[in-house]
Computed example of a mutant assay.
Amino acid sequence: MDLIAKMTQHFDDSAEALYLSAQELTEPLAASVELLFATLTNNGKALACGNGGSAADAQHFIAELVGRFERDRLPLAGIALNTDTSILTAVGNDYGFDAVFERQVAALGQTGDILIAISTSGNSENVMRAIQVAHERDLVVIALTGKGGGKIGKMLRDTDIHLCVPHERTMRIQEVHMLMLHAMCDGIDALLLGDVE
């Protein structure tokens, strides 16, 4: 395979992953938008976490809420749990890296808030521990996973929302995760501005 064919294959594979995801995930994605809208307009907040590329996605999503997406609006409450290096290093040093998100959910999460838990494998221990504490504190979880959902898929409650990308390759899962996070932002804005019902 030459380099041009290899690059073309990436576009083809990404388009296929997006198509398959659209068939399976539009309904739970719409439910996520409705849940986020209800929470964020009733004094609740979104807490988001992930590792590596998923950490970047969590941070990006919260930036769109607090700042803006494509249209001016009031800021919406959100915290990316992977951005405070003092907390991450203090908790990681004192309790271990697996505790870096759970400690923050325990400190900041309140009934009525939402945890956005992002893990392409569905098996990130620190994200799973954050979900466990979120459940103990009566937060609803929106989990973005792939590869069949992993352990996270098995620990979610009926009241949680699972957005599991039907793909095994990490890069394709991350591409769909970013699209869904942008779609959530657009949906929230549309509801805020009365563009959709």
Rank of each mutant, 00 (worst) to 15 (best):
E175K: 01
Q110S: 14
K147C: 08
I114N: 08
T26G: 00
V176M: 14
G53P: 03
R157V: 06
H60C: 01
D113E: 06
H135E: 11
E34K: 04
K151R: 15
T159M: 01
G96F: 05
G50I: 03
G148A: 13
S21R: 00
G109I: 05
N42C: 04
I114K: 13
H182K: 12
Q23V: 02
A107D: 11
N82W: 03
I114R: 12
L81W: 01
A63I: 00
T8I: 04
L40E: 12
N51I: 10
I79G: 10
L181W: 06
I152G: 02
A38Y: 02
I87A: 15
I142Q: 02
L181P: 11
F69A: 15
A31R: 15
K147I: 07
L81I: 00
A90G: 04
A107Q: 12
G153S: 10
L65G: 10
V105A: 12
C49L: 11
P166G: 08
S21W: 09
L76R: 04
T26K: 12
G96I: 04
V165S: 01
A31H: 14
S54V: 00
L47T: 07
A107P: 09
I79Y: 07
P166D: 08
D2V: 00
E64M: 01
C164F: 03
R73A: 11
L29F: 11
L191M: 14
A90E: 03
D158W: 00
S32M: 03
A183V: 03
N93R: 09
R172D: 13
G194T: 04
V105Y: 06
M1E: 02
D57H: 09
F37V: 03
M1S: 10
K154Y: 02
H135N: 09
F11W: 09
A17M: 09
G78Q: 15
L74V: 03
D13Q: 03
E64S: 10
L156Q: 09
H167L: 07
I62Q: 15
H60P: 04
E136S: 11
S121T: 09
